[in-house]
Nucleic acid binder design. Structure first.
Lengths: 248, 248
DNA sequence: TATCATTGTATCATATTGATACAATGATAA
DNA sequence: TTATCATTGTATCAATATGATACAATGATA
């Protein structure tokens, strides 16, 4: 099947099953060791890259739809996934889609509901589906050109994620079962894009009281072996839901 | 024109001009002196109250549409208005609308994009339009039954607003041109729903350095007259955009 | 056994917050 | 005129949090 006919076939079926004028875009952040990446796809017939996305099924919960899109592209389940903003500027969906037939639902105006997720990209094998020709992790310091306003969506997601880092402990699913404080610090530094003071980082994290301290450390390297920790699920979840610390 | 025919007429015209499956709901908080209220409307043929809302014009920017809805109901311009979440649960739009003809666009599934605004309700005269029979300020401590999931939308807006209070100075448009620290504190206490320490409040607010201090105080009452302040526009706006203080 | 990189942890200065106290002010009434 | 009183402005101290720095502990390597 050639490129256009895939679109056409999907377009015909689209109105039967989906809500028009609404799309979901997922900014999937991939972390590992000391690198932060984003999952991008290249659609058939497109030069520029795009955020993985999809449309909302008529009989589908919004959050469920986002979860499904993420799972289909990554296979990842039970990851942190959160809605952060809906984009509805005029004209945002028209650029870059001019090559498609005018009456395609793709060409019509639509809003995009933005979600962001956080995964370990070493555990993920990106999936190329039938309307895309590529699905890859891209380093956030070397991003290719992106279609429509996807670059802006990505940047807002990054800002929101960095902000939320201040209120919710993260790291679960992004680190091995057992990890060290230097490893956790690297994670924070990578996501925040800046270095942090070592001693103060440990003090602050340990004050959260969400870790289980293990007896043996991680061996290897000509230096003192760091202590291994793992997340205390109960305390971790409690801290997550408590979340936002109040200032007043 | 009877109730149903108004709906029918609007329904016919609807698809010509608007995006289906998408609505905008505005949680308009009204503050004055020491009371916090919410603007609610009662639609024709409905017993329960609803958040003021509307639909997105095909050729209309999302934020512009929210602004228009707010202005039509309140006449208020240049107020704080911010998108906070999109609601897309399955079934949320079906309850409470069963009395309408099944093929109405009202009856179809739709998402709601939630905005919240903050105004002085003494300056606002709520507007009853042709599809509603009432539009009133309701005290947040004595809310009537609301349709669909509007109660939940309101509660999430309240939580978001209270949270944002910690990062952005507010009060502009909610207080007279010149105001005192006790008045500003009352505003915070009313919105947060709790009392704050007097001395510490002053210290913290003044540390923001966004006020102009005036020479004369406000007279009246058998006690020391409080100092009058007004917002320093430049510094205030700068603080607003700087906004979110980073913790790391 | 010495060396070295890295880690754990202590410490000090500074900043922020919570709690409390007290003087200043201005209307009211004796 | 003066005493009273409610409220406001502001200082202060303790508790807590943060930033910066130092130093001892550890474990591989030479």
């Amino acid at each position: 099947m050639d490129e256009m006919s895939v679109f056409e076939q999907r377009s015909k079926a689209f109105y039967q099953t989906h809500l028009p004028h609404i799309s979901i875009d997922c900014v999937v952040f991939g972390f590992h060791i000391n690198t932060l990446k984003v999952l991008l796809v290249k659609m058939k017939g497109q030069e520029k890259w795009a955020l993985p996305g999809g449309f909302l099924n008529k009989e589908q919960d919004l959050n469920e739809a986002a979860k499904t899109i993420l799972e289909e592209r990554t296979g990842a389940e039970k990851v942190f996934l959160e809605q952060f903003k809906t984009f509805g500027e005029l004209g945002r969906s028209e650029s870059d889609l001019g090559y498609m037939p005018e009456d395609f639902w793709f060409r019509q105006r639509f809003l995009s509901i933005g979600y962001y997720a956080l995964v370990d990209y070493e555990k993920i094998m990106p999936v190329v589906d039938e309307i895309s020709i590529a699905c890859e992790w891209k380093d956030i310091n070397d991003l290719p050109e992106m279609m429509m306003d996807h670059r802006k969506i990505y940047e807002e997601a990054l800002a929101v994620m960095r902000f939320q880092l201040n209120f919710k402990p993260i790291g679960y699913n992004l680190l091995p079962e057992e990890f060290t404080m230097p490893e956790l610090q690297k994670l924070y530094e990578t996501i925040l894009g800046k270095t942090l003071s070592r001693g103060n980082f440990q003090r602050k994290m340990l004050a959260y009281d969400i870790f289980i301290k293990h007896d043996k450390g991680r061996r290897g390297g000509a230096h003192r072996s760091p202590i291994l920790y793992s997340f205390d699920q109960d305390k971790y979840n409690h801290a997550l839901s408590r979340g936002l610390k109040e200032a007043w």
